[in-house]
Nucleic acid binder design. Structure first.
Length: 348
DNA sequence: AATCCGGGGCG
DNA sequence: CGCCCAGGATT
């Protein structure tokens, strides 16, 4: 048997039953692929179910507000995926009469769709022999063929894309692509791959040379930076608080949070008392405050560690427009904020 | 080509 | 605690 026969045979026996494997509808495949970017199936599955239930067609998604979409996406991370998903749904409905593009080249033009997702949709839905290259493919191919080119470089991408394109089963690109990814995910795993019962263990270069743990090669990434966040949790006498949408280009765009004071270092109670931005925020009004968490909450993102303090501040009237505390849970927020909302007992 | 963007799980 | 995950956009 050749490579593609071994692989697709393995897949026919070992594939998992997943909801998006029961359809070739490009809307559902697109939805699943966006949700599963940099996300494991176990984590993404409930979100996929929720999106299909709330937005059964691309028209439903296009007609929703961005806020509804972000709310449903809450907790999944990489929120630009949700914004691009919504943008592209509206684009397809309004500019393409709701008809999904059906070639790799056209799919690639859509916002939020790059090489991987265009290849996945084109092959799975339209039988175009475009090879997918994701983390699973990098790992499996680098091990099987003993390729040491770093995967997070342009050369690495080109090398593995070309190899996967050579290997793909042009008669059944849909199953081949899903098979090679499934194989990487459940058989040729990052840690403790199942080499003893692997159908490729007689031809695997890495197994032969004992380099499984060294492959794929990945260049070191940049170090994480430390930031200090101070959230101002206002409580007015009429049970309202200030809760605003993040704007600009940084993290958590369009998600909601309490007013934020970012500082160079950790803020003590005395620092807080005299901090110009805090005094400025309350515009001279007097206020009583307590520090909610004595020890900082360290919220870890891939490139930032957010050292966070929540300050509970009682005021007579809010310094700016606010919302009722009972409405807080209706807004899309980062996990850092929603955890606080779950843990903190607002006075009633 | 390098950097940024989240959050969860695993060993 | 470091690494990995069905990547893409921006600079």
């Amino acid at each position: 048997m050749n490579f593609k026969e071994i692989l697709t045979n393995w897949y026919s026996v070992n594939k998992r039953e997943l909801p998006w494997r029961k359809t070739k509808n490009p809307y559902y495949i697109w939805l699943s692929e966006i949700i599963l970017q940099q996300t494991q199936i176990k984590q993404g599955l409930p979100y996929y179910e929720a999106f299909v239930t709330n937005f059964p067609t691309i028209f439903d998604l296009a007609n929703a507000s961005e806020e509804e979409v972000l709310k449903l996406w809450q907790g999944l991370g990489y929120y630009s995926r949700a914004r691009n998903l919504h943008f592209t749904a509206k684009y397809i409905v309004n500019e393409l009469n709701g008809i999904f593009p059906n070639t790799y080249k056209e799919l690639l033009k859509l916002k939020g769709i790059g090489d991987y997702t265009a290849s996945a949709i084109a092959s799975i839905c339209f039988n175009e022999p475009t090879a997918v290259v994701d983390g699973n493919v990098y790992r499996f191919l680098s091990r099987h063929y003993g390729i040491e080119t770093p995967i997070n470089t342009t050369e690495g991408f080109k090398t593995f894309k070309a190899l996967a394109t050579e290997l793909i089963d042009t008669n059944n690109p849909a199953d081949f692509n899903q098979a090679i990814m499934e194989f990487g995910a459940t058989q040729c795993k990052p840690k403790n791959p199942e080499c003893t019962r692997c159908p490729f263990n007689s031809s695997c270069e890495a197994l032969k040379n004992d380099t499984i743990s060294k492959l794929p090669v990945k260049l070191k990434k940049t170090k994480v930076s430390k930031k200090h966040f101070n959230f101002l949790v206002c409580i007015s006498s009429d049970k309202k608080t200030v809760f605003n949408k993040r704007t600009g280009k940084g993290i958590w765009k369009n998600l909601y949070q309490f007013p934020l004071v970012e500082t160079k270092s950790s803020l003590s109670v005395d620092d807080f008392k005299t901090h110009p931005l805090v005094k400025d925020f309350f515009n001279g009004q007097r206020y009583d405050f307590t520090l909610y968490n004595e020890t900082e909450i360290i919220h870890k993102l891939s490139h930032q560690h957010l050292h966070t303090k929540f300050w509970i501040i009682e005021v007579n009237t809010l310094p700016e427009e606010g919302i009722y505390i009972t409405e807080l849970h209706n807004y899309p927020t980062p996990v850092l904020i929603s955890n606080f909302l779950n843990d903190f007992n607002f006075p009633v």
